[in-house]
Design a protein around this nucleic acid. Sequence first.
DNA 1: TGTACATCAGTGAACGCGCGTTCACTGATGTAC
DNA 2: TGTACATCAGTGAACGCGCGTTCACTGATGTAC
Lengths: 207, 207
Amino acid sequence: VTIVSSTDTRVRNRRGEGARLRDDIVAAAGEILEAAGNPEAVTLRAIARRVGISAPSIYGHFADREAIVDAVVAGGFAALTRAVESAIAGSDDPAERLRLGCGAYLRFGDEHPQVYQAMFACNGTIATDRAPIAVAAGAEAFGVLVEGIRDAAARGRSTSTDPYLDGVATWVALHGMSTLMANLPGFAWPDRDVLLGHLVERLTRLR
Amino acid sequence: VTIVSSTDTRVRNRRGEGARLRDDIVAAAGEILEAAGNPEAVTLRAIARRVGISAPSIYGHFADREAIVDAVVAGGFAALTRAVESAIAGSDDPAERLRLGCGAYLRFGDEHPQVYQAMFACNGTIATDRAPIAVAAGAEAFGVLVEGIRDAAARGRSTSTDPYLDGVATWVALHGMSTLMANLPGFAWPDRDVLLGHLVERLTRLR
DNA sequence: TGTACATCAGTGAACGCGCGTTCACTGATGTAC
DNA sequence: TGTACATCAGTGAACGCGCGTTCACTGATGTAC
């Protein structure tokens, strides 16, 4: 167990290296979000306490509080895309690549449930500005999924005749599985891998 | 458009009817949640402004702020169960009943996206106390789904051999579809009913 | 090699705000006699 | 029928808190000469 005391004093960055604080701020924000389970807990003061700086120092790197959460979300999308792409690189078989990719997607949600939630919680009123970020970044990972289904169909491993529709279906199912399992740990869930395999198989129409 | 001015003054309840304020408080909390899109916006003062009372009056009916949100969530579960049950009463055909029930579930999510989100957002740290409520109340609606699949299978309308697993699969897919469509309106969604029909058909194994 | 100086990476105190919650209270409304 | 009184349904002022943000500042670090 690593305990970061709140009385920690950080050594000041050397000249020219001030930008490193930016990364520390984003990392701290992500940790606070993950620990508190709610984006409102990611306050400038909480971040400052965790990093070991004073709150106003943050303004050298971010315009306001919201910009920090946006950076956490952007980092989450980058990490998710990386995870999925490195997972599917593990096989040449199109059906297996679909399974690996979806498994990696779900694993990301398991490991960073609050960041994952924040990534897709740019709902209506609150952060309409962030929706385009999510759409653009998520579109990349989503495109990989659709291409995977198309490829599997072309090579006779899937009976899909509408890869886009099947891709959306698979994605919403994965999303629902990830968020519900995180939020309702008390429910009598079937085995994670059985459920995942079931969804992927039926929705990407593997055979 | 109905505009409820914040300078509205409420007529005081007559003696013995004080409990009516309780319902007004829960209704106002639900409206604020739905309008603001985030549970932190449901403050005692915002509720008081909307109802036309002073903030301390709320303490006659609720122990604290959290209890109000809990009441909204409980009301949401009751309404969801009612909606699903009244929808499936519209047909005797087991496959059609599944479609109708899932359609009603999704419609509830469409019409009350923030309440729906709050119902299932009793994540880890924040409101562990609320998880049992969700599990118990949701279990009722979920049981209806599993029974529906079992019934359809018994009458030859579904090829399901594991109604529980298929029920979970259907549920997580509906949940994912509901929350993602609400949160990412900018995405190029397929037609709502096509996607819904697709998910229900494949996951409950209709034939 | 020494020194004045610009710049960088932050700090500390303070502001105004809305919040949950408490406290003592008020005034209308029913009820007992 | 009248009246004293208990009760009910709230109110108004105040508290302490943590927050985002601003402002003028400080002191170490590198650079020009």
